[in-house]
Write a protein that binds this DNA or RNA. Structure first.
Lengths: 223, 223
DNA sequence: ATCGGAGATATTGTCAACAATTTCATCGAC
DNA sequence: GTCGATGAAATTGTTGACAATATCTCCGAT
């Protein structure tokens, strides 16, 4: 084990996962240049794999690919983040609506659990837990909705927001603000009220947009 | 001129455009297998270009890429079309809302023109013209909205629907049904009424969904 | 000191041959 | 006649070397 490079599809997957993670962890700064050979070395893959991986990431909007000049980590401005979140708002609204129509008893039970777990987490100030539950809730609503198209679009949009979600969850007082909004979504779905579920989801994301707008801009270009 | 193969980025672009067009024109049946060497020959490109082009098309959801087994034209079922159109509904609703808020005098003039041109086309039974105006209207609303993220998502979704849009526009009586809906969208934007614009856009696409549901399924697999 | 250009270096893009895998056709057993 | 195996053909996947381009470095002129 050790220095055999992952080749082909395995390699490509490795690189995609690796870059995604590095991006989420903040190890790669927005705007940073991504050199194919460097990536190949760090992830022990071939340059071909890296090349394909970069194309995949570019298609997902995580990386910017400029012909003959290589790849950079895509820079997402606050305005971009707002536009993305506006789209999330209507798409999650759609998902919440469908979820309210289709949720099975099992789905409802899980939703209820997440709801109470969220309240506990906020009560005890466990920010990390609350953030994780937040992600799980949004994912669950999308999955339960059966709206696979919206689900994949949301996946994509969320991927582009990693950096901002990070910063937002850490804001003091934010959980207190978002918890009742999350509860409203859960309650509407449990009550089987599609219109209320859509309204609640959109209201929640509108509030996220407000928070984004109040953001000073996530880093005025260091390099 | 003639038998020099387009190479590199030129080649890739050629292939992407070529396949897109063939797909729109119905020259490639859904489910049809796409063999790399064949495509390379027909589009006078190298296999590398074809390979990259296929990945791009797969990312756009037009082609299905199965490892080690090649590429096929993606089959879109009626259910898929409905899910796609549901997403279009909320996204175009968002665009219509923003367009109502932001349209300049110039934008409004163009919108007005398209509206009257649509009425003329329907009056005189010019189906092809009406269909083209339809596309132009939807595109214009998206562009005027300034919601570039929604615009690109819609682009993608529309690309996947080419076959269905085709069939739908040809239905007898359909123009009479959709014309007032289009007028409602235009009027709401002209009036600067965001809520009404969103409602009108969603209502229009809800009606499209109804039409899709009444479709017998676009071709029960010939091959 | 700053600007601009020539050469060197680094980086991306291309290609054709080769390897691995799947698909197809043929043939034999039941 | 159907099913399954065996081998041939077709197809996709991978690789490394090479070509084209961009970027950097250094130097001289103003």
């Amino acid at each position: 084990m050790g220095q055999n490079r992952a080749t082909g599809q395995a390699g490509r997957g490795t690189v995609v996962r690796g870059i995604r993670q590095a991006l989420a962890a903040g190890d790669m700064a927005p705007g940073q240049r991504l050199v194919e050979q460097e990536l190949a070395d760090t992830f022990h893959a071939t340059r071909s794999s890296v090349r394909e991986a970069l194309q995949e990431l570019a298609a997902d909007g995580l990386v910017e690919l400029i012909p003959r000049r290589g790849a950079r980590v895509r820079v997402i401005s606050v305005e971009d983040a707002v536009l993305i979140t506006e789209c999330r708002a209507v798409l999650e609204g759609l998902c919440a609506r469908r979820a309210a129509e289709r949720a099975t008893e099992k789905d409802r039970a899980v939703l209820r659990d997440i709801g109470t777990a969220m309240e506990d987490a906020v009560d005890q100030g466990e920010l990390e837990t609350y953030s994780a539950l937040n992600r799980r809730l949004h994912e669950l609503v999308a999955r339960v909705s059966g709206q696979t198209v919206a689900e994949s679009l949301l996946d994509r949009l969320n991927g582009q927001m990693v950096r901002y979600q990070f910063r937002l969850a850490l804001r003091p007082g934010r959980p207190t603000q978002s918890l009742p909004q999350h509860r409203a979504i859960v309650d509407a779905i449990l009550a089987g009220d599609p219109a209320a579920a859509e309204r609640a989801a959109r209201a929640h994301l509108d509030s996220v947009i407000e928070q984004l707008r109040a953001t000073p801009g996530p880093s005025p270009h260091l390099a």
